[in-house]
Simulated scan of single mutants.
Amino acid sequence: MQVSHIETFPLFYQLPEPYGDANGYKTYRSCYLLCIRTQSGIS
């Protein structure tokens, strides 16, 4: 199985009310979604 294509989808959400935690003050949340496709069409 060989990877033929990788797509990334960065996500960003501005919080309506900031909050603080042990890592500091947060005004947004973010993450990445990945879609990995193989030469045989599996994703």
Rank of each mutant, 00 (worst) to 15 (best):
A22I: 05
L34Y: 11
Y13C: 01
M1W: 07
E7T: 03
C35P: 00
H5M: 02
C35T: 00
Q14R: 15
R37I: 12
P16F: 10
P10T: 04
L33A: 15
R29K: 05
P16W: 12
Y28E: 08
L15F: 06
C31E: 07
P10S: 03
E17L: 07
I42M: 04
I36C: 10
T38F: 12
R37W: 15
P10V: 01
I36T: 01
G24Y: 09
L11F: 07
Y19C: 03
Y19P: 02
Q14L: 15
F9S: 10
K26G: 02
P10G: 06
G24I: 01
L11R: 11
Y32Q: 05
M1P: 13
Y25H: 13
S40K: 12
P10F: 14
E17R: 08
Y28C: 11
C31S: 04
M1V: 13
T38D: 14
Y28K: 07
Q2M: 03
L11V: 07
Y19W: 08
Y25D: 13
D21G: 12
Q14V: 12
E7L: 12
T38H: 06
C35E: 15
Y25S: 10
S43V: 08
A22Y: 11
S43D: 03
C35A: 08
Y32E: 07
T27L: 11
G24W: 06
Y25W: 11
L11N: 08
E17Y: 15
Y25F: 12
N23T: 10
R29A: 05
L33F: 09
E17K: 14
S30W: 07
S4P: 06
S4Y: 05
N23G: 08
Y28V: 08
Q14T: 14
I36V: 14
L15Y: 01
Y28N: 15
P18Y: 05
S43I: 02
C31L: 01
F9Q: 10
G24N: 06
L33N: 14
Y28P: 01
M1A: 15
L34E: 04
Q14Y: 04
I36M: 12
F9T: 07
Y19Q: 02
Y32W: 07
S43C: 09
Q39Y: 04
L11C: 14
T27R: 02
E7F: 13
S30N: 15
T38I: 03
V3N: 02
F12V: 02
Y19N: 01
P18A: 13
Q39I: 09
I36W: 04
Q2I: 09
R29M: 00
L33M: 13
S4I: 09
Q14G: 04
C35D: 06
G24D: 03
L15H: 00
T38P: 03
P16G: 09
I42G: 06
T27H: 06
Y13L: 00
Y28D: 14
F12H: 11
Y28M: 04
Y25K: 01
F12E: 13
E17D: 12
Y28L: 07
T8N: 15
L11P: 06
Q39P: 06
I42P: 03
T38Q: 06
Y13K: 11
P16N: 04
C31V: 00
T8W: 00
L33S: 11
C31G: 05
N23F: 13
C31Q: 07
L33K: 03
I36D: 07
Y28F: 08
N23I: 03
Y19D: 00
L34V: 11
D21T: 09
E17V: 11
P18W: 02
